[in-house]
């Protein structure tokens, strides 16, 4: 499967989707001008991956900041993980960032995917 590897910028997150090396990660800042357009390739990739996924998939979210327009798309990404067998989310948050911790809790309540909240 093709690899998605996007460098992070000041308003878009770093994204790595790499089946061969078992890396599934979104990190950094997410406040793109058009969040739907930005996240569409990720959603397309996950839909394709779901057809022939690894026995276990650990998806790392290590976000420093995301805006409200991105939150709907993050939920879409999480919802896409519901269709992937043994998918699990590792939601990283800076240990003093209560808002990011709470965001992880809220997302975990909205989707049927195993979540682990991980302070760093």
């Amino acid at each position: 499967m093709e690899i998605i590897n996007l460098e992070g910028t000041e308003d878009t997150p770093k994204i790595i989707l790499d089946k061969t090396n078992k890396i599934f990660e979104i990190s950094g800042r997410s406040l793109p001008e058009d969040s739907a357009e930005f996240y569409q390739p990720v959603l397309d990739w996950l839909e394709e991956y779901a057809k022939d996924s690894l026995p276990e998939t650990i998806f790392d979210f290590k976000l420093e900041y995301f805006n409200t327009a991105s939150s709907k798309l993050i939920l879409d990404v999480l919802t896409a993980l519901e269709d992937i067998k043994n998918a699990k989310v590792h939601w990283y948050f800076y240990e003093e960032d209560e808002d990011m911790e709470e965001a992880g809790e809220e997302f975990s309540e909205l989707v049927d995917v195993e979540f682990e909240l991980k302070p760093y």
């Binding site: 058009d34 805006n67 709907k72």
Partner: peptide, 30 residues
Amino acid sequence: KSLYKDIIKSGTGLTNKGGAGLGFVDMARK
């Protein structure tokens, strides 16, 4: 908190740009 979750879950009134007052809800929360 529950309004925020309702809006992102239902997608009601959300456009590509966000919308539905989600930004205001977030400003009030933060």
